[in-house]
């Protein structure tokens, strides 16, 4: 098991009931997981707990066999090796695309950093945009930069908070397909949070349905559904 989450329980300071109750989940290396639920179901909170942005009342999280959260231990977000793509991307507005992508690259020689930057720009197909500022990019481009920025430090786990909610519908479908290919290509383990069934189905290997902070059911996407989706996408692009 690559990521092991056990018995996570979390309650916001002013809330009467816990937002997350006894949440457990194991994820294989390279697997893509979708956490699907309505707003208020606690799905985004799970991401924040994994990232270390909130501290749960109980539970343990292990990544790659290393405990990052337990009863006695708390690894701060900067040391967890978890990358995150935010809902609104959170690209630093005062830095260029290149600076944004290189922000997380530390303890590296300058040349190595630049090489990694080129590699990332190639991956997201935005080579000519490296000196632009985020506000000079379209929504789809911004999202790709956010992805490259999160991927650059080679995190052991990548998490996405509603990655498509800020894109218009036609763009959503296109990017969704691209993203799955890209993630499988890099072999990175990832977790998506979404409220959109179609997003979850198109992207994930497994879908975790969540309601009121607990897991309702976990469904493995059959390869068939993906094939259907792929076919649909092709039809769309031809049109």
């Amino acid at each position: 098991m690559h990521v092991q989450i056990e018995d996570l329980t979390f309650q916001y300071r002013n809330a009467k009931t816990p937002t997350i109750k006894n949440f457990s989940l194991s994820i294989d290396k390279g697997e893509i997981i979708s956490i699907l639920g309505d707003s208020g179901s606690g799905k985004s909170t799970i991401l924040r707990l994994i990232a270390g942005l909130e501290i749960p009342q109980s539970g343990t999280i292990k990544i790659d066999g290393k405990t990052i959260l337990s009863h006695t231990h708390f690894t701060p977000p900067e040391k967890r090796g978890v990358g995150m793509v935010f809902q609104d991307y959170a690209l630093f507005p005062h830095m260029t695309v290149a600076k944004n992508i290189m922000f997380g690259l530390r303890n590296m020689k300058k040349a190595e950093k630049l090489a990694r930057l080129e590699e990332m720009l190639e991956l997201i197909n935005l080579k000519d945009f490296k000196n632009r500022y985020p506000y000079e990019l379209s929504g789809g481009q911004q999202q790709r930069v956010a992805l490259a920025r999160a991927l650059a430090p080679a995190p052991s786990l990548l998490i996405f908070d509603e990655p498509f909610s800020n894109l218009d519908a036609s763009l959503q479908e296109k990017i969704r397909g691209e993203l799955r290919v890209l993630l499988k290509q890099t072999g990175i383990t990832s977790i998506f949070v979404t409220h959109d069934q179609a997003d979850a189905k198109a992207l994930a290997d497994r879908i975790v349905y969540i309601k009121n902070g607990t897991i309702e059911r976990i469904v493995s996407s059959t390869s068939l559904t993906f094939k259907v989706n792929r076919a649909k996408e092709k039809v769309l692009t031809i049109q």
């Binding site: 995150m84 935010f86 630093f92 997380g104």
Partner: peptide
């Protein structure tokens, strides 16, 4: 979010 993004990038 900018602060959180920065910390998740290891800062």
């Amino acid at each position: 979010t900018f602060t959180e993004a920065s910390r998740l990038l290891g800062a």
